[in-house]
């Protein structure tokens, strides 16, 4: 065998090994998602989705957890979207390259890295105790908002920066102010990208447990919250509770709850990806 054949053989073996590694990454994902669907689907029924939990959560539905998660997601969006998008606009359209801007970027990187349980501690310290909101949807939404902020800021900034600079120059040369340029040209053009980022950020918030452990979550609260100051059940925490904290839990309910949470999160993911690819196909620049 000459060296060139040998080299080709090595290359083949190497590429084969890499594809095995890649398979090793994605196969478990497919299996896990498939398995949860397989085990969880039988649990899904009208009562399961719209009923209150009964018999110490061992029967009945998970409506309060579903509603709690929806409220939390909406609450998080209310605080984090305007703030995050505005911050992204600042970084992309206004900020000069100076010390302050570098500090802001450092802060965002730092926010993105803080462990979720530390957000929980912070939310407990500031919102629950210091501001006296109690364990409540409000305290949880605020905590999740700050956690989501870096995701929204960085994806929105990327979307804004993708808008060609020439549009801005032309708009300004036509006598538009900076804000008019942003509102009439830059924002509409980057909107799909921003929405994608927002959904991806909220997706993460919806699936998180640690930040709501001490700020919102009620172990067992078989009714719907009716004010932002109410504590509430939430899907991820409920799943944690019924899978590790309550003995004698029917497996079906655990997988059913996991499936609902998964659908919630994957649905958001799918929505985000669809918006992104649609907008890319439509774009003229």
């Amino acid at each position: 065998m000459n060296t060139s054949q040998q080299r080709n053989l090595i290359q083949k073996a190497g590429f084969g090994m890499l594809s095995v590694v890649a398979l090793l990454t994605v196969l478990p994902i497919v299996l896990v998602v498939g398995y949860i669907f397989y085990q969880g689907l039988p649990a899904i029924s009208f009562e399961f989705l719209t009923g209150l939990p009964r018999e110490g959560m061992r029967a009945g539905g998970i409506l309060p957890a579903i509603v709690g998660t929806i409220y939390l997601t909406i609450g998080t969006a209310i605080f984090s979207v305007p703030l995050g998008v505005a911050a992204a606009i600042y970084l992309s359209e206004y900020a000069q390259d100076n010390l302050l801007t570098r500090l802001i970027r450092l802060a965002i990187i730092n926010l993105a890295g803080i462990p979720s349980v530390v957000y929980g501690l912070f939310g407990l310290g500031l919102f629950v105790l210091f501001l006296n909101f109690g364990t409540s949807l409000l305290a949880g939404s605020l905590t999740l908002s700050i956690m989501t902020l870096p995701v929204i800021i960085s994806t929105a900034e990327e979307a804004l920066r993708a808008v060609p600079q020439s549009f801005r120059v032309v708009s300004i040369s036509l006598g538009a102010t900076r804000w008019q340029t942003i509102r009439r040209i830059v924002l509409p053009e980057s909107l799909p990208g921003i929405i994608t980022g927002v959904i991806l950020g909220l997706e993460r918030a919806a699936g998180e447990t640690a930040p709501i452990l001490f700020t919102v979550a009620a172990f067992f609260l078989p009714r719907l919250p009716d004010s932002p100051f109410d504590a509430s059940m939430a899907l991820p925490y409920h799943l944690f509770v019924i899978s590790t904290q309550v003995p004698g839990m029917p497996l079906k309910l655990q997988y059913g709850t996991a499936l609902v949470l998964l659908c919630f999160v994957l649905g958001m993911n799918l929505l985000a990806t669809t918006i992104r690819s649609r907008a890319r196909a439509k774009r003229q620049w």
């Binding site: 020439s166 549009f167 120059v169 032309v170 708009s171 040369s173 006598g175 003229q284």
Partner: peptide, 11 residues
């Protein structure tokens, strides 16, 4: 007012 070398139409 200014007209540039590359025709940049706004979207």
């Amino acid at each position: 007012s200014m007209v540039f070398a590359r025709p940049v139409t706004l979207p």
